[in-house]
Amino acid sequence: MITLPSASQVALEIRRELLEQIGPELTSERARVSLEMIENCLRNLAVRAEHEIAWMREECDAIEALATAVAEALDDAAVRDALAAYRDGRTTSLHVADVQRDYDRAGEALSCTAEALARSDDHPQLRARLAEVFATRQAHELEIMGEFAFVGRG
């Protein structure tokens, strides 16, 4: 297959064409707001195309390590079950839909881990690791989001 220009480059080129060639031709306020939303989505797509598979895999590994430690320290059944479901369903496929399903099951394990730690008054080190896992997830979301403001409001 032909891999260059990359999907990210193509998305950014579509964005540039829309902004520079199509945008100035628009007279309707509603169409201009739509264009701004499309522009934003194309920037989102460009970042996702570059990184999302690697980011999901990396986050899954960190979640698995944390959930394992929390399941052992708190003997929490929900964390144990969610972790088992993640491990049972995990694939080695790199197709986006397969990676997304793995990430989804890891996400459930992360939710159960956060809920278990919220019920406990102890384990500051595990809480700190939980905060790190969420910080990584947040950093990825913010990089995809880029500059964001509510377009067309006001």
Binding site: Q100, D104, R105, G107, E108, S111, E115, A118, F134
Partner: peptide, 21 residues
């Protein structure tokens, strides 16, 4: 809302647990 969603959003469950406490 998180459990009814099409994908997991651990932020919601984390925040819900914090708010409850």
């Amino acid at each position: 809302a998180e459990r009814a969603h099409v994908e997991r959003d651990p932020f919601m469950r984390h925040v819900g647990a914090w708010l409850d406490a």
